[in-house]
């Protein structure tokens, strides 16, 4: 499947030394993966055509969200507004509402927390509408999250217009295969 680095809008190429953790990945319904790694941390916003009076360097998730929204989801007003106003949770939820799978690296890299907790991520899946193409692309993400100590896998269901989620914690090695095993297992039964 096509992998695009959403920070550069070019094909995503894994760093040759593979020492940059995945920062965020979005799997569109057609299976295209928009992804980027931490190599853009601390780069000037100006490199991405964004001016900010308060922050000059890319440091946090919402900074990545702003660059993503500059190139993608241009017709989604909620995503555009959430990125502009730095409303991160609404931004992330609207990505899922758009039928996309989202991986989010929420590791605390500084201080003793990193020694204790190591790398942690979230995988948000719109379970009711996920496509075969997305499931195939999800398998391609596996090498990028294997080194994470824990992954919070959230299966979303929209019920009566409201978000409900089932969450399981898994290791980076097992997270995707466990989800896919459940998904395919359920399909065989029905």
């Amino acid at each position: 499947m096509k992998k695009i680095d959403f920070m550069t809008n070019q094909e995503y190429v894994m760093p040759s030394d593979n020492n940059q953790d995945l920062k965020m990945a979005i799997i569109l319904p057609d299976g295209t993966i928009l992804m980027t790694d931490k190599s853009h941390d601390d780069e000037p916003f100006g490199n991405y055509g964004i001016t900010d009076s308060e922050r000059r360097f890319i440091t946090v998730h919402v900074d990545y969200a702003r660059v993503l929204a500059k190139h993608f989801f241009l017709d989604n007003d909620i995503i555009q507004e959430a990125a502009k106003t730095e409303n991160l949770y609404t931004f992330l939820m609207e990505i899922v509402h758009s039928g996309c799978i989202l991986f989010n690296n929420n590791t605390t890299y500084t201080g003793p927390m990193f020694i204790l907790h190591q790398k942690h991520g979230q995988l948000l899946i719109p379970d009711d509408v996920v496509t075969e193409e997305q499931l195939a692309s999800l398998q391609e993400l596996e090498p990028f999250i294997q080194s994470f100590r824990s992954i919070e896998v959230k299966k979303f269901h929209i019920l009566n217009g409201k978000d409900e989620a089932e969450t399981i914690y898994s290791s980076g090695e097992d997270a995707i295969s466990t989800y896919l095993g459940e998904k395919y297992g359920r399909k065989k039964i029905t």
């Binding site: 939820m93 959230k154 409201k162 409900e164 089932e166 969450t167 399981i168 914690y169 097992d174 466990t178």
Partner: peptide
């Protein structure tokens, strides 16, 4: 977050979310 469970894999729970 509600209906918290623990199994050999770790924690599981259900949740409802609103923006």
């Amino acid at each position: 977050v509600y209906n918290i469970r623990q199994n050999n894999q770790g924690w599981t729970y259900q949740s409802k979310i609103s923006c």
